[in-house]
Design a protein around this nucleic acid. Structure first.
Lengths: 337, 337
DNA sequence: CTGTTAGCGCCTTCAG
DNA sequence: CTGAAGGCGCTAACAG
């Protein structure tokens, strides 16, 4: 195939020498930018192809003052990589990867430890990415607010704080909580509980909405159980809680994984779902439908969320001062309620 | 805080000017490399800290001829980002992110379309990453083999091919299949099926091991059902298959998601699991234990797999000619068998 | 111990 | 339409 075996082409200069033109001509030919005669351009492109030469993206980016990558950071999951295993986060990650690729950007998945207060500033100043998407503000609201004040290309998935914070995209968690409450009440449930850690803002909003959606007579009796998120830990928590003799007839869980743990723990204690106990999750992860019984849940549209995140980010990169977006949740009634 | 407001420090040169030293001194101070008096180093580091200055990683990497990133590519999941949602892949991704971060590398998640034959060469030549981890060879065995012949820093998760291919890490899928077969036989199951797409090499090996683990008398009667991998699609496939009147008493599924779909579909057809039908999955994803009934499965140690992948990759980056690794699977008996 | 110098591979004015 | 030259921000010899 190779008529002239000149060794691997390391740089644009090698190719220029080979083609008998200058480096700038090669650059113009390969980037498609700048005026160039049709003939030369075609000839050089063919030559590059034949030798398998591609512009070095790193150098290109340095010169252009960009990186071609968007960082996705998940403060929630920093302590253990395993936290990343939450199906919701992962599904989100997949959609983000697609949306970013469509725009010609790479997704940089970088674990950062929110141990020091300046973890985010430090990451940003390292210049590894042209923008940052944060999934789950966790307890870093203050940090995010401070950084947002002077760094534009950042968007956050999570619960809308009181104005002035970073640009956010998220489900209307409070509305979701109300949906769950109304549904349980319609089912005749009266002894209720919420499973989730309300130190996480999203979960706090779900909890608040849940209470708000209840008649005043029930509101005071709602048990609040601070459950972890992983399958193992939440299952253990639920089992202990049932073992302690708690017998509610309706539970709203902060996530589908927690809800599935509850279903499993209920079975361990011979509680029938949904006859004795209604359980509602949140997220509608793909596996929720496959659970036995199929899980009733409040759906967040993850794909729409990912697209909004990316749209918003690129608007802000483009200089627009685009603001937050909220996505309406939807109750999906299956068989655990 | 800032005693001298000089505007944001854009580069090492600004800081050098501010500190009254040369750029190389600043470089030495901030990288910690090279000889430098304790005093100057401390002074410059303090100054950098005070002004929030950090070395630009992109420029640093260009100079060093590296990128500081490892690409993770998943040819399986390229058509739709959603494919990434398989819990196994996702869990793997989390462990990889951790292992790479520990070594100071970023994880570049880049969707590439294996449409043209040179997708991998093109990606590599763009120079975006210092190494490549491929999760799931899918039908790209030929491409991987060819690239491996001239590109060292690449490792593949999947099924060991006949020698000469790329460096691989993977579970011993055939042994896993045998474990499943022996277990079903011990349970007295005689009418068997395998659910999975044997065009995928890993699944083909699981299928082959399954047959090999069976007494000759049963081997011929094993149904082979080509099932997709996503929850929705595999559930539909299983339901249709039961609806067509098929009534095996033992099924080995290519993945836990497929197994959970089978459990759900069996329930739709009033088949009791495990009384009427034993089902075994593969992977042992975190949710397998939470399924109702908890799923019997063949466990692959995902964390060990991720560590082997990263170890192997860096050995190869370091010039070693390290070869493949195989991980022993383990049967986890729960309640679907 | 510190400064000077020459690039890493590319893009982009500015001339011709 | 094409070439020459400077520089993106940083590091690593080589001098001093």
């Amino acid at each position: 195939m190779d008529d002239q075996e000149t060794g691997p082409l390391k740089s644009i200069a090698d190719l220029a020498r080979l083609a008998g033109v200058s480096v700038s001509t090669v650059s113009r030919a390969l980037t498609g930018k700048g005026a160039l005669s049709k003939g030369t351009r075609g000839r050089i492109q063919a030559l590059a192809d034949r030798h398998g030469f591609r512009l070095n993206v790193a150098a290109q980016n340095l010169r252009l003052g960009r990186t071609g990558a968007i960082a996705v950071l998940m403060p929630l999951g920093l302590a253990r990589g395993l936290q990343l295993s939450d199906p919701f986060l992962v599904t989100m990650l997949g959609f983000l990867a697609d949306a970013l690729t469509d725009r010609g950007y790479d997704l940089l998945l970088s674990r950062v430890s929110p141990d020091r207060d300046d973890w985010l500033d430090a990451f940003i100043r390292a210049g590894r990415a042209d923008g940052v998407i944060i999934i789950g503000q966790a307890d870093q609201g203050a940090v995010l607010g401070r950084v947002a004040a002077h760094y534009r290309p950042m968007v956050v998935w999570g619960e809308q704080g009181a104005g002035g914070g970073p640009a956010m995209v998220g489900a209307d968690n409070e509305a979701g909580g109300r949906l769950a409450a109304q549904h349980l009440v319609e089912r005749g449930r009266r002894s209720l509980a919420f499973f989730g850690d309300i130190d996480v803002p999203e979960f706090a909003a779900r909890h608040a909405g849940f209470l708000a959606g209840l008649p005043a007579s029930l509101r005071g009796g709602v048990a609040l159980v601070c459950s972890p998120l992983t399958p193992e830990a939440s299952h253990a928590k639920a089992r202990d809680w049932f073992a302690a003799g708690n017998r509610p007839d309706g539970i709203f869980a902060a996530s589908d994984v927690v809800a599935m743990s509850l279903v499993a723990a209920a079975a361990d204690h011979d509680l029938r779902v949904p006859q004795d106990l209604s359980i509602i999750g949140f997220d509608d992860i793909p596996l929720a439908r496959l659970a036995r019984p199929p899980l009733t849940t409040v759906r967040q549209d993850i794909e729409a969320g990912a697209h909004h995140l990316v749209d918003l980010l690129f608007r802000r990169i483009g200089g627009e001062d685009a603001g937050s977006v909220q996505i309406a949740p939807e109750l999906i009634v299956r068989e655990t309620s």
